[in-house]
Design a protein around this nucleic acid. Structure first.
Length: 882
RNA sequence: GGUGGCUUAGCUCAGCGGGAGAGCGCCUGCCUUACAAGCAGGAUGUCGUAGGUUCAAUCCCUACAGCCACCACCA
């Protein structure tokens, strides 16, 4: 390979596509079942099938790909299972929009034709996001790609529905649900976003019917934010203990404008301190009123239709939009003398999470999942540690939600989705739930009609960890890969998705779908705002890949933040990442340029200090990176690798190698080359999970490369390479080098000019520095000489002599006083021994072992081991000091 | 109303019981035969406030303040 052809700047565009194609074509992503190997599996959170990649996806997938690539190199049989979601409301809305542009609507087309259009839409845009995921470098098993509405997943959906139905865990009921007047469907509680909104509180006076009771005022005053709903009022409620209204309970009042007589009832729900302490009750249009209505057996009067326009039962208001009606009602109430006053108020108003339309609570017949029996095992699983959230605080959030969970409304008045597998008999009215369409009803009638509604999108994604592995068939994949190893997702969908996968996994597989849930934050814009279409502040990952490369994007997203925390998109850091890739590129160029005639097996001299030092450092890095990955600290892992490459390999080792490469000793030259290559190769392997493309490109250029770095064994920590002595010596040599460099600038010695240096040191240091004198000479442009002991009045010597530009007399700060240093170490050792005794005592204490959770015991053990290691290091250090 | 998070160098953020750090920016000097997307050197911090625990606290505990997020049925 001619290195002259390797350009001095790294160009991602030249290599990314090439390698991705290579990997995919060679089948490196594919994971067949192999009982001889340990499985490691992640199911990808399925993005919207017709969506486009955004930064959230980029972060999510960068994390997953890093974990997957790392485990794959560790020798696990690694399956990253990709797929897409049909995204009911979102996709249907998009297609409806495009129809509207043609002057069409879904109702004009009819259900079948409309669905054809959606499928065509899916065909057209369905490949876009998966192509974009490839550009990120995602090493998923595309041969196993799934879609929530493919045959297998649909089968699983029907199976789950029918089984839950048969267990009585799915029921159909008239209930008040969140109606989106724009999307024309019910949505579940978590799909409603509450926003603080400025509104008005209208105080209205309802006159008493007949003669006012003794002591009464002749009317009752209620407060409402939605005056148009008075048309559906059926009662006025007060708190049972409220003295002000006690005499009125049981009497009736007249509903203004309508004239209906309403009973005054007592119910604990009313807060006497709010408004007037009297509440108008509208069971068909408010969830609380609905409950009150049920308790008191009140009628439910609907006053609005699907568009949230007033219905035909509202007389003069019929046909008016709800807000238009509000204005009219207020005017009419004022004219009639019923309006007492209007107050400004800010209150939280529910909006549809898709279209931001204000939700109208509405009464309708819907399907629900009974949550209590499903939530209990899911709660227990988290309490018992069968599912662990990373970071841990999300466990509480999850538990909190699970414990207060309400029944899940799963029916949607949409067409795009899994149609509810229930058929109604025209003859007897019987409902039949079935996996496949039944021929006839139990009564014998063939007049069956399927429920028109479809299921909530999250119903099918909730089955994702097992439906994608073949369930309900007991496939080899299911047995082998379930439960999966970890779930990686954003904290915004813990409720929507994670919780549902957990309880459905427990219900149908008897096991949690994953032992760990790794939660990451949102990617915010550079100013810390959420990226959104309406703000137009989104950054397109594909643009970034094109300008800076996928590796840089991944590096930027993975560094400098911690699990669960939001991350700001930051162009400076992106450039930093690109610069780092370039640094890596050039360091590699340097190595490759110096390999002319190199053969891996050639004879070398025994390692010298510099080699021992870099190998020790590399070994430490391997250990620390691996440990960080095991703790899901990806940012820390990549930072460690970064610091090793920049701070040690590039800044020092390469510089140390230069004179050796150009020198006369062939054995030493061979040694330097060998170590340069060995460490570079290992570093590329460590970095590969984070920056797959550039590492593959360089790795392939190294002598003895295999088919792919993807399948190279993950670097192992090698006790043979551990060499604290070399580290200690190099620390001293580096310190001296830095001090000389500093003094050179202080006294303005021109860069190329050599200086004579006189260094005072103790015996131990003298030995070390003499060993390192060549290093100091070349890296500090100095001619070092050493003297025993501290030079007198060192600073003055520096000034006086350096002014001439020839000799620098150098004191070594701090390290000179060996006795002091020894004392310090001994003191620390004593403290460590103390701590260790305490920890060991704890670990020997049976009461502690019995009571403490396993995690705590493990932590204590870890601490003990850590202290032992520290102690050992200190002992070595002490020995070095003589 | 409830819960959680954040507050560390000019900016963006790591760290987290015994040395206060990185990147960018800034200052000085360098195109030194891998890299100016670079090299060498440098300046910069009462680690939000007040208490407490500890031999030792930026890190643990308590309270407070400011910002942010989530949850909640305020009519």
């Amino acid at each position: 390979m001619g290195m002259e052809n390797i350009p001095t700047t790294y160009d991602p565009a030249q290599v990314e596509e090439k390698w991705y194609r290579h990997w995919e074509e060679k089948g490196f992503f594919h994971a067949p079942v192999d009982e001889g190997k340990k499985p490691y599996c992640i199911v990808m959170p399925p993005p919207n099938v017709t969506g486009q990649l955004h930064m959230g996806h980029a972060l999510d997938n960068a994390i997953q790909d890093t974990l997957i690539r790392w485990r794959r190199m560790q020798g696990f049989n690694t399956l990253w299972l990709p797929g897409t979601d049909h995204a009911g409301i979102a996709t249907q809305a998009k297609v409806e929009e495009s129809l509207a542009a043609e002057g069409l609507s879904r109702n004009v087309l009819g259900r079948d034709k409309f669905l054809e259009r959606v499928w065509a839409w899916k065909e057209r845009y369905g490949g876009r996001i998966t192509a974009q995921l490839r550009r990120l470098g995602s090493s998923c098993d595309w041969q196993r790609e799934r879609f929530t509405m493919d045959e297998g997943c649909s089968r699983a959906v029907r199976e789950v529905f029918v089984r839950l139905f048969e267990q009585g865990l799915i029921y159909r009921d008239y209930y008040i649900t969140n109606w989106c007047p724009h999307c024309h469907t019910t949505i579940s509680d978590i799909e409603v976003e509450h926003e603080e909104t400025a509104g008005h509180l209208y105080y209205l006076r309802y006159p008493a019917a007949g003669h006012p009771p003794q002591g009464g005022s002749g009317w009752i005053e209620v407060a409402t934010t939605r005056p148009e709903t008075i048309l559906g009022d059926v009662a006025v409620a007060v708190h049972p203990d409220d003295e002000r209204y006690r005499s009125m309970v049981g009497t009736t009042v007249i509903l203004p404008l309508v004239g209906r007589e309403l009973p005054v009832i007592a119910d604990e729900y009313v807060d006497p301190a709010f408004g007037t302490g009297a509440v108008k009750i509208t069971p068909a249009h408010d969830p609380n009123d609905f409950e009150v209505g049920r308790r008191h057996n009140l009628p439910q009067i609907k006053v609005m239709g699907e568009d949230a326009a007033m219905n035909s039962d509202t007389g003069p208001y019929s046909g008016l939009d709800r807000y238009e009606c509000r204005k009219r009602i207020v005017r009419d109430l004022r004219d009639g003398g019923y309006l007492v006053r209007i107050e400004d108020i800010t209150h939280s108003v529910g909006q549809c999470y898709r279209c931001n339309t204000v939700i109208e609570p509405a009464l309708s017949r819907q399907w629900f999942v009974r949550m209590k029996p499903l939530a209990e095992p899911a709660t227990l699983a988290a309490l018992k540690g069968q599912v662990t959230f990373i970071p841990e605080r999300f466990t509480r959030i999850y538990l909190n939600w699970m414990e207060n969970i309400r029944d899940w409304c799963i029916s949607r008045q949409l067409w795009w989705g899994h149609r509810i597998p229930v058929w109604y008999c025209a003859e007897c009215g019987e409902m039949t739930a079935a996996v496949t369409q039944p021929d006839r009803c139990r009564c014998g009638s063939t007049g069956l009609e399927q429920d028109p509604d479809v299921l909530d999108t999250w119903f099918s994604s909730g089955l994702w960890p097992f439906s994608t592995l073949g369930w309900p068939c007991q496939t080899a994949e299911l047995a082998y890969f379930y439960p999966t190893s970890v779930l990686v997702t954003g904290r915004d969908i813990i409720f929507f998705w994670v919780a549902r996968m957990i309880f459905l996994g427990l219900a149908f597989q008897g096991e949690v779908p994953f032992p760990s849930v790794f939660i990451h934050g949102l990617v915010l814009d550079p100013l810390g705002r959420k990226m959104s279409k309406s703000l137009g502040n989104g950054v397109d990952p594909i643009d970034v890949i094109e300008s800076h490369g996928a590796d840089s994007l991944r590096f930027m997203l993975l560094t400098g933040n911690t699990p669960g925390n939001d991350i700001r998109f930051n162009f400076e850091r992106l450039e930093g990442a690109r610069n780092f890739a370039n640094k890596l590129w050039n360091a590699s160029r340097f190595v490759l340029m110096n390999l002319e005639g190199y053969s891996p097996g050639e004879e070398t001299a025994p390692p010298i200090l510099a080699d021992r030092w870099i190998l020790n450092s590399f070994n430490d890095t391997v250990r620390n990176v691996t440990q960080s990955l095991e703790a899901f600290e990806l940012g820390e892992a990549v930072r460690l690798a970064y610091e090793f490459i920049r701070g040690e390999y590039c800044d020092w080792y390469i510089e140390l190698a230069k004179p050796r490469l150009y020198g006369a000793d062939p054995l030493d030259r061979a040694l330097a080359r060998r170590v340069l290559v060995q460490v570079l190769r290992g570093t590329l392997e460590l970095l590969h999970p984070f920056m797959p493309f550039i590492t593959e490109e360089i790795w392939q250029h190294l002598p003895g490369a295999g088919p792919t770095v993807m399948l190279a064994p993950w670097p192992a920590c090698d006790p043979e390479l551990s060499d604290p002595e070399a580290r200690a010596k190099m620390d001293l040599i580096q310190e001296v080098t830095r001090v000389i460099r500093h003094l050179r600038t202080e006294v303005n010695v021109p860069p190329g000019k050599k200086v004579n240096v006189l260094i005072g040191a103790d015996d131990y240091q003298l030995a070390v520095l003499e060993e390192g004198s060549e290093i100091i000479a070349s890296l500090a442009q100095a001619v070092p000489a050493f003297s025993r002991g501290t030079p007198e009045r060192p600073e003055q010597s520096v000034q006086a002599v350096a002014g001439v530009g020839v000799t620098v007399v150098l004191p070594l700060k701090g390290v000179l006083d060996v006795d002091k240093e020894k004392a310090r170490i001994q003191q620390e050792q004593a403290r460590l021994r103390d701590d260790m005794a305490r920890t060991r005592g704890k670990l020997a204490n049976e009461a502690f072992l019995a009571k403490a959770p396993p995690a705590v015991v493990e932590k204590e053990k870890g601490k003990a081991a850590e202290m032992a290691a520290k102690l050992e290091a200190l002992t070595e250090r002490l020995a070095l000091l003589g």
